[in-house]
Design a protein around this nucleic acid. Structure first.
Lengths: 245, 245
DNA sequence: GGAAATTTTGACCAGTTGGAAAAATGTTAG
DNA sequence: CTAACATTTTTCCAACTGGTCAAAATTTCC
């Protein structure tokens, strides 16, 4: 349903506080067979679990989620789930790793050689589509941020920062060329993130406020229209070139 | 430190799944004396607890937080804490109730008779100040939203919606009067919420991206400047009235 | 078909968690 | 001083949690 391009980044903080007693044995019945190329069934089950875990983690956060919950959503028993992911943290790590990759793709596509407004508009559009189509991923990310990003601090301090720095530079160039209003490129990017992800993270609120009326999918199109205008012209009224209303 | 205008809204969902066995007895030694006007010490202790709970809940969410954690931050034992708030949920409820009140104050002050841009600008400013000065409250709110606002759905579906409807109407009037660009007032409000609260909720990310440089308090001023421009004129470059750069 | 490997299940465990009971320690008004 | 009350601490518990383990059920491969 959602986990499209997984990628298994493998970071291994290894900092398990309480390692119980599972030592270097590692080859008993429990862990899914190492070395071997990972059977089709294993991949399927892992995806089912990751999908279920996304569902749960994105709502309750890491600490607030239990393996039992995830197992139930995944339709399997807890020990069975633990057969595929020996540790709760491992599931979360995998989700986050996959997420970060997908999540930043739109920003990576930001093209230096394109037209500033076309680039910005399509970036907003893509982010908005992701908020619509992958709200759980957005919430998982938000949850992690709210907690101070304990598990991904290096990733955002290094990879993300580098990427944003790069794109900010592009924006600055455009500004110097007079093709874009001179302003803070970092906060510009923040504002795009904020306004688009809001529709995923605060979905309940958005729906509640818009009321029973057109809170179907229309809100995303309305949002797209509104944001386009906002980022283009702001809220200043049109200079009123032709006659009155 | 933070809980200014408490208000004790009293909602009582009462849906405790596991009621253990505490029945109508209710008058043992545990509960803080009912009826009596609530001594000064009681208020103080309650505030200490609420303060600690805010600290914990805002980071880990309701389910992810434990009474032990809160008690430790509050500098008291768990049973002692439970003497003042017999239930974990009760603490959370109190926090949320107080929060909603404070949180919406800036929007309430939105004045129909003011100048559109002055009103919008000062609304943005106030929200930004709140993000800076009360980030935990913002995160607590965000956490609740991420979880689908299970404990405050009626409140946002009724009170919040009514308030926003009212203010949206004002915005519409301004638009019709040609004093504000014609656009969707609801999404306009969403965008203000999103862009301002972002600085509290995604603080880690913002700081990481801005880097070690001026991530002190400067970011809030930069944000204020940027947002002012965004909401005023958008990102279109100045018409270039006078000469070149 | 059957041995080997994989997957699933059921029983179990130690540590945590929300909360109860009651005893112990203040505090205060008469 | 002391009885009545308020507060705090100690002890305890049942349910929940992350995780283990051996055995049973199933699949895979020759």
């Amino acid at each position: 349903m959602s986990g499209k391009k997984l990628k298994a980044v493998e970071h291994h903080p290894v900092s398990a506080k309480r390692q119980h007693k599972a030592d270097a044995k590692a080859a008993a019945t429990h862990p899914p067979p190492r070395q071997r190329p990972l059977t089709r069934i294993q991949k399927e089950k892992q995806n089912i679990i990751l999908e279920a875990a996304l569902e749960v983690f994105s709502v309750h956060g890491f600490r607030g989620s239990t393996i039992d919950q995830i197992a139930e959503v995944a339709g399997m028993s807890k020990p069975n789930l633990l057969y595929y992911f020996p540790r709760k943290e491992e599931i979360h790590r995998r989700l986050i790793a996959a997420l970060l990759d997908t999540w930043l793709a739109p920003l990576r596509d930001f093209d230096e050689h394109g037209d500033p407004f076309t680039e910005i508009r399509s970036y907003i559009r893509r982010k908005l589509e992701m908020a619509r189509d992958f709200p759980r991923e957005s919430r998982l990310f938000a949850n992690e941020m709210l907690q101070g990003a304990p598990r991904i601090s290096e990733m955002i301090e290094i990879d993300l920062k580098a990427l944003v720095d790069e794109k900010a530079k592009i924006l600055l160039t455009w500004m110097e060329q007079g093709r874009l209003a001179r302003t803070d490129p970092y906060h510009l990017i923040f504002s795009i993130w904020a306004t688009t992800q809001h529709y995923a993270d605060f979905d309940v609120q958005v729906r509640a406020v818009l009321g029973k009326g057109r809170n179907g999918e229309g809100r995303f199109e309305d949002a797209a229209r509104y944001l386009e205008q906002l980022f283009m012209h702001g809220l200043s009224p049109k200079p009123r070139v032709n006659g009155s209303a």
